[in-house]
Design a protein around this nucleic acid. Structure first.
Lengths: 230, 230
DNA sequence: CGATGTTCTTGAACACGTTCAAGAGCCCGC
DNA sequence: GCGGGCTCTTGAACGTGTTCAAGAACATCG
């Protein structure tokens, strides 16, 4: 693949990194629209065409940012989770970690989200290209569930990480649209909703609710974690 | 407003309509990206700049399409709802009406959705510009609830139209990402989920669930129907 | 060393969404 | 009729994301 040896940073890889670094700086400085491919190329010291040699599109370039945000979330969550017990508290911890990590990028989160919402975009959370990012995210939720002392219906317990991932998407959605200062309302949502979530999960052990719970789970299972894809 | 009399179609209004018509035809024929502003202007028999006199942006133009789709949904739902009794059945009827009306545009629904997902877009369901469309949509849900024989907790009953609107957004979301032939899975979702939804609503009358239900409603109320906006 | 194929780089070009100054058409009061 | 102020219309221009043919730099093999 490379000329030299097993060294990770071939010439091309270095250029690629320079481009991503330039892009991240500009994204934070000028937002999505302000970050033109020409500006990125200039800042990275390469020609416009060269940037396209490494990244098929602006969206592919932005995915680099997206992946890094995911990492920040995973790291922060792993740091804070130990010692936290209840399911609700653990979920809240994870989500607050996300809000802290993502806060500085909130101003262009909307644009990012819009780009990601396109099913044909590589940034789409359900797309092939972001399978790693999605897996990393559900992994966090698995950790949230595993360390908790929650009791629930067995099937629910099994599906819980995926369900929490959906809840996380909901939080992200709310956060993206949150125009309150410092996104306080998003934090409010997380702290208020988490106990309710825990209570709901606990309720699934009730005999009388079993049929309804099973109906719900069947529904989720049948429609598949991979949403509506074939 | 117009030169003539109370006639609805002034010169400008006619041109505006011609442009929207051209846009809808092209959207169905060529998809979102294929529908260039130049092509729309050509098809409508006006200059490019003229199209921008009537629509501030491509997104605003597409909103014309969006509004019409909403109308089609409302009309179709109003046609089919009479005689349908249960809440689940009524919701399913409304949603299937939507799926039928929207089906032909599914191929570019993703792009539309992506554009709409941008908080700064006029197409965004929570934006100022789409207040009418949103109201029209919740109106359908009010009708779904009003005609039904559902029994539920009083507060739930009051919030139900808004909650069903959220459920509708969920259906739309699923549909957008539905790549199954003829979007069969979306229809499956609607037919399977509607009875579960009815059952859940019915459960809210249980004494034992009252605290949890109230917690949930408080949460929804506090965070506001207008999502995270101030 | 020299030839050959691969990787990397360039700048020009294209179509697009959008803006804008300029003008055409129209209506009203005089 | 005619001036003045609207509404409506135009075409050129700008900056954008993206493509592409061409060449430079480099690696590999004889």
């Amino acid at each position: 693949m490379s000329s030299k040896d097993g060294e990770v940073t071939s010439k091309g890889e270095q250029t690629r990194t320079r481009i991503v670094d330039a892009a991240m700086t500009l994204l934070e400085e000028r937002g999505y629209d302000g970050t033109t491919m020409r500006a990125v190329a200039d800042a990275a010291g390469v020609s416009l065409g060269n940037a396209y040699y490494y990244f098929a599109s602006k969206e592919h370039l932005v995915q680099g940012f997206y992946d890094r945000l995911q990492e920040l979330h995973a790291t922060a969550a792993a740091e804070r989770l130990p010692g936290v017990d209840g399911l609700g508290a653990r979920f809240a911890t994870s989500e607050l970690a996300f809000l802290d990590a993502a806060g500085r990028y909130h101003r262009f989160a909307g644009k990012m989200f819009a780009v990601a919402a396109d099913p044909s975009s590589p940034l789409n959370p359900l797309s092939e290209a972001s399978t790693p990012a999605r897996d990393a995210s559900t992994q966090i939720m698995r950790e949230v569930v595993r360390g908790s002392t929650v009791r629930a219906d067995a099937r629910v317990l099994e599906e819980l990480p995926d369900l929490l991932w959906l809840a996380h998407l909901g939080v992200v959605l709310f956060w993206v649209y949150d125009s309150s200062p410092d996104q306080r309302r998003s934090r409010l949502l997380v702290t208020k909703a988490s106990p309710v979530l825990e209570r709901l999960v606990g309720l699934t052990r009730w005999r009388a609710l079993r049929p309804t719970v099973n109906e719900l789970l069947d529904l989720v299972a049948e429609l598949g974690g991979r949403s509506a894809g074939r």
